[in-house]
């Protein structure tokens, strides 16, 4: 399976998903008006990946900010990885990075932690 690499743009984050290492990184900002257009290929990639995932999967979220349209898609990304984790195909962990003075992003990590059945680590950078 090929890695998924999408360059950062004004309204969308960079995506670097490596199926061999299991490191899936989302970085930058995510504020497209219609986030589904952007996230659809990501969901499709994840669907294939979850069938034969790496033994360990780490989702690295390094976002400066994201809009409410994207918040839904982020939740979907996590939810799509839950079965691989609960079924034992891959040990999935989420590393949620936030800047030390950014309470909003820390809170956002907390929000997802409350909704998603994956282990979260909130990491101050």
């Amino acid at each position: 399976m090929d890695p998924l690499i999408i360059e950062e743009s004004i309204k969308t984050p960079s995506i670097t998903f490596n199926p061999n290492t299991g490191v899936l990184e989302i970085k930058g900002k995510s504020i497209p008006e219609n986030s589904l257009e952007f996230y659809k290929p990501i969901f499709e990639w994840l669907e294939v990946y979850s069938k034969t995932p790496a033994a360990n999967t780490e989702v690295h979220v390094r976002l400066d900010y994201f809009n409410t349209s994207s918040s839904k898609c982020l939740l979907d990304i996590f939810r799509r990885l839950e079965p691989a984790n609960s079924g034992g195909a891959s040990s999935v962990k989420v590393h949620w990075f936030y800047e030390s003075d950014d309470e909003d992003m820390m809170e956002a990590g907390d929000d997802y932690q409350a909704l998603v059945k994956l282990p979260f680590t909130l990491i101050k950078v």
Binding site: P32, E33, T68, S69, K72, L115
Partner: peptide, 30 residues
């Protein structure tokens, strides 16, 4: 506001145009 946000986030679907129905709650919360 946080509870409302989480509730909406986990239960509603995005509209065809990508609206999450969360904008007003988010503005008040942030």
């Amino acid at each position: 506001l946080r509870e409302e946000y989480l509730q909406q986030l986990s239960t509603t679907e995005l509209s065809e145009k990508g609206g999450a129905g969360l904008g007003l709650i988010d503005m008040a919360r942030k």
